[in-house]
Design a protein around this nucleic acid. Structure first.
Length: 323
RNA sequence: AGGAGCGUAGCUCAAUUUGGCAGAGCAGCUGAUUCCAAAUCAGCAGGUUGGGGGUUCGAGUCCCUCCGCUCCUGCCA
């Protein structure tokens, strides 16, 4: 089974990215042939600084390797090392009705916020469908918010197959039960809210962020509701089951302050992520090795894509000089 | 290619009419407070007013020019 996933670099990775996607990616590598790409073409819809995009692309690779991605088991590559996806994007565009893209939630969000979207934002679902279809993926692990994109992909595969002949395999979404990760202000952790805790951040900076997580004003001695507390939600993600149960009790019983819970949360952060600073530094110090990993995975992915594209072109009548 | 509008702090905008010290709110940072936060209070920082040129004692404001964005018209693979 081939599992495909894209990671769109738009900023330094944070705990929301980790628990929302990265963790599942790392778990899946045991059982599936993984194709994980760094979606730098997608980033270009919002990131407009060349040096920054280069840095983000590199950092995502380093973060995945640091967190235990095994380049022997997973093909970790840059989206742009398979330029055929952009060609497939165009071909899919020619069989896809405009109405479908009008209904895309990402696009509608832009319109609702009265932000003038560029065509990349509008065509995003086409590129994403191309990403998925071009590797004949069986399984696409996604969060709930990505489900629409997978449905669109199935639709587009159908449009093409119907118009020409069956070339594309219908990919299946695998809904992961990714938890909602609250940011330090209590909203969903997201770069655009500026409420993130970095995946592998400076200890002092992370501590400060953790201490500033928004809580209610229940006094120390009173019972507290773990259900509504961001600190508890994060503890739940990092602690062992026994400790989680213990904290739940302490919350409900009262007598424990949020400050104490935050201290513990920081300790757990250090155990899980802080301890990998050295590993990350090692990867960062070996840019050539990282480049080799990306490049050779990109070559393997491209070979798959080129094979499919030959079939696509043949099906729709696009003639090209053979290479 | 033509017409119209717009461009001021990270964001939303004011000051343009009548040329006269570039400002506010939000966000940010520091401190007080707090179990930790929030709120509140005190403080700090934030700018080539899209670029260049001109007029003027003095330009965010007036003139010229270039750039960018939005809408419309035209043309086009």
């Amino acid at each position: 089974m081939r599992a495909l996933s894209g990671i769109k670099p738009t900023g330094p990775l944070h705990l929301g990215n980790y628990f929302g996607a990265m963790k599942q990616h790392l778990e899946l590598q045991a059982a599936h042939e993984g194709f994980y790409f760094i979606a730098n073409y997608h980033s270009l819809t919002t990131v407009k600084d060349a040096d920054y995009l280069r840095q983000l692309t590199r950092d995502v690779a380093i973060d995945y390797l640091t967190m235990g991605l095994d380049p022997q088991r997973v093909h970790l590559f840059r989206q742009s090392d398979v330029p055929e996806v952009t060609e497939l994007t165009w071909i899919l565009a020619t069989v896809t009705g405009k109405g479908l893209l009008d209904r895309a939630t990402t696009y509608k969000d832009f319109v609702a916020k009265e932000i003038v979207p560029n065509m990349g934002v509008y065509c995003y679902p086409l590129l994403m469908a191309a990403d998925i279809l071009i590797y004949r993926s069986d399984v696409v692990p996604v969060g709930k918010d990505q489900l629409q994109h997978i449905e669109f992909t199935q639709d587009m595969a159908g449009f093409f197959n119907q118009t020409f002949r069956p070339v594309f395999k219908r990919p299946e979404a695998r809904l992961n039960n990714a938890p909602v990760v609250p940011g330090i202000d209590g909203q969903k952790m997201s770069k655009s809210y500026g409420n993130t805790i970095e995946l592998i951040g400076d200890a002092k900076a992370v501590k400060k962020k953790i201490m500033s997580i928004k809580t209610d004003s229940t006094p120390v001695e009173d019972p507290k509701n773990p259900e509504t507390c961001s600190v508890f939600a994060l503890l739940k993600l990092l602690a062992e089951p026994e400790e989680i149960a213990e904290w739940e009790q302490r919350y409900r019983k009262g007598g424990t302050g949020y400050g104490t819970a935050k201290q513990r949360l920081f300790e757990l952060y250090e155990q899980h992520f802080g301890c990998r600073r050295a590993t990350r530094a090692q990867w960062a110090a070996r840019p050539d090795d990282v480049e080799d990993i990306l490049r050779s995975a990109g070559r393997r992915a491209r070979a798959v894509a080129q094979e499919l594209m030959a079939e696509v072109r043949d099906a729709c009548g696009i003639v090209r000089a053979t290479e």
